[in-house]
């Protein structure tokens, strides 16, 4: 039981991941979908950051008397992944702007009916 609670970081990862995934699938609003997608990606960032933590370790800056450091590599990886995530979100929102100009709506169902009628 205690170990289950002790791993609360991973519970947060899973909860965020499911929230994001659900929003992507279930919401017809295109902007909400993009936000859901970003939450989904964020949960993975936390997964990487959590695994970098070494028990009793400090920030990876060399200092006298410190022997245990957290692993800095996942942080660096996630810095890259955050950039990718921001780029994806920006591109997705830009596409929504263009879709709104072309269809006059950002509701997936309405876009679908418009495409079917055409």
């Amino acid at each position: 039981m205690l170990t289950l609670l002790g791993l609360y970081n991973y519970w947060i990862v899973i909860i965020l991941m499911m929230i994001g995934f659900y929003v992507v699938i279930a919401r017809p609003n295109l902007i909400k979908k993009i936000v859901g997608l970003f939450i989904f990606q964020t949960s993975v960032f936390i997964l990487f950051i959590s695994m970098a933590k070494v028990e009793g370790g400090t920030a990876p800056i060399v200092e006298a008397g410190v022997v245990s450091y957290s692993n800095p590599l996942p942080h660096v990886l996630i810095l890259t992944a955050i950039v990718v995530g921001v780029a994806t979100t920006a591109l997705g929102l830009a596409l929504v702007v263009r879709i709104r100009e072309a269809y006059g709506t950002i509701n997936e169902d309405e876009i679908y009916t418009q495409d079917e009628e055409a």
Binding site: L37, T88, L91, L95, V96, R98, I99, A102, D115
Partner: peptide
């Protein structure tokens, strides 16, 4: 429809 196709692919 290219826009919605690209959006769907993006997601």
């Amino acid at each position: 429809r290219a826009l919605t196709a690209a959006y769907q692919y993006l997601v």
